[in-house]
Amino acid sequence: MKYWSQVRAIVRKDLQAEFRTKELLSSMLLFAFLAVVIMSFAFDPTREVVKQVFPGMIWVVFAFAGVLGLNRSFLTEKHNDCIAGLTLAANDGSAILVGKVASNLIFMLVVELVSLPIFFVLFDFRSKGSLGLLLLVVLLGTVGFVAMGTFLAALAVHAKHSEVLLPIILFPLLVPLLIAAVQATGAILAGQGFGEWSLWLKIIAGFDLMYLVVPTLLFEYLLEV
């Protein structure tokens, strides 16, 4: 279908550009690494209490590293007015959003997969739950984050000081997702039973759906010149 081949073209283009410049991933990765290190200074990793806020720390770092990447993702589209070029070519404006969401998702997952082990090592944290489940929560939580984040990044890029503006508009809207993601991650890391985390996973999936559908419906209005 033409829609998906356009989505694929956008993802491929973003990966090519990133492969060449490595701007996005390097800054996101370094930021995440740095944030973990600072967290381990701020919260003594040897204290038992810190283990309880471990899931929260993970998502705080992911969120801030993510915003860093989201901010950049539409700056390159604004340069030379590429967004107009995309709009001219895209049959359906939402293909642009879906493509950008997909490439941002890839970048964020890379950052998360690299920084998770660093978290575990520096905090000497031992998970009692399964790794597969942890990765599932991370994936689901990131989908919602990136969907809403990409949409708002496309909006914020037209404003002055867009870098500061994006987290300010994004984080309040993502409060529900962050609560659910932290709860689910905590339950899984503590090795709690199916009943404890499955509800949260379902909630996250529901939020993901909202955060994907509403921006897709509104994106045409955002694209107008």
């Binding site: 090519q16 550009a17 007015d81």
Partner: peptide, 13 residues
């Protein structure tokens, strides 16, 4: 086909 004073091109590619 549209040609404007903006190029619609990506610098990194």
């Amino acid at each position: 086909g549209v040609i404007s004073h903006q190029t619609y091109l990506y610098d990194a590619l």
